[in-house]
Amino acid sequence: MASLDWKTLHSEYIYKDAWLTARKDRCITPTGKIVEPYYVLEYANWVNGLAIAEDGRVIMVRQFRQGFRQTLLEIPGGTMDPEDTSPEIAMRRELLEETGHSFEQMTYLGEICPNPASSNNVTHMFLATGGKKVQEQQLDQNEEIEIVYLTMEELKQMLLKHEIKQSLHVTCILYALLKLEQLKIV
Rank of each mutant, 00 (worst) to 15 (best):
M1D: 12
A2S: 11
A2V: 15
S3W: 12
L4D: 07
L4K: 08
K7Y: 05
K7I: 07
T8M: 06
T8K: 11
L9H: 02
L9M: 13
S11C: 06
E12T: 14
D17L: 09
D17W: 11
A18K: 15
W19D: 13
L20R: 10
A22F: 12
R23W: 14
K24W: 08
K24L: 08
D25S: 03
D25I: 06
C27D: 12
C27L: 15
C27E: 15
I28M: 14
P30E: 11
T31C: 03
G32L: 13
K33A: 11
E36M: 10
P37F: 12
Y38S: 14
V40Q: 13
L41E: 07
E42V: 14
N45H: 14
G49Y: 05
L50T: 06
A51K: 03
A51V: 08
I52F: 06
A53G: 07
D55I: 05
D55A: 04
G56R: 03
R57G: 01
V58A: 05
I59N: 01
M60E: 02
V61W: 05
R62L: 06
R62G: 03
F64D: 01
F64M: 02
R65F: 06
Q66D: 07
G67C: 10
F68M: 14
R69G: 00
R69V: 02
T71I: 11
L72Q: 08
E74N: 10
G77P: 09
G78E: 06
G78N: 07
D81W: 15
D84L: 04
P87E: 05
E88H: 03
I89H: 14
M91Y: 02
R92D: 06
E94G: 03
L95H: 02
L95D: 02
L95T: 00
E97P: 02
E97C: 05
E98S: 09
H101C: 12
S102V: 09
S102D: 10
E104T: 13
Q105T: 13
T107G: 00
T107K: 08
E111Y: 00
E111R: 10
I112H: 01
I112D: 01
I112L: 01
P114Q: 11
S118H: 14
S118D: 06
S119W: 05
H124L: 04
M125H: 02
F126I: 01
F126H: 03
F126R: 01
F126V: 00
L127H: 04
G131I: 10
K132A: 00
K133D: 00
K133S: 05
K133F: 01
Q135R: 14
Q137A: 12
L139N: 08
N142K: 11
V148M: 10
V148C: 09
L150G: 04
L150C: 04
T151R: 09
M152P: 01
M152S: 07
E154C: 07
K156G: 10
M158T: 01
L159T: 11
L159R: 12
K161G: 02
K161Q: 12
H162T: 12
E163N: 10
H169F: 04
V170D: 04
C172R: 04
C172H: 04
I173T: 05
L174V: 15
L180Q: 13
E181K: 15
Q182M: 14
L183P: 05
K184A: 13
K184G: 00
K184V: 15
I185F: 13
V186T: 09
V186A: 11
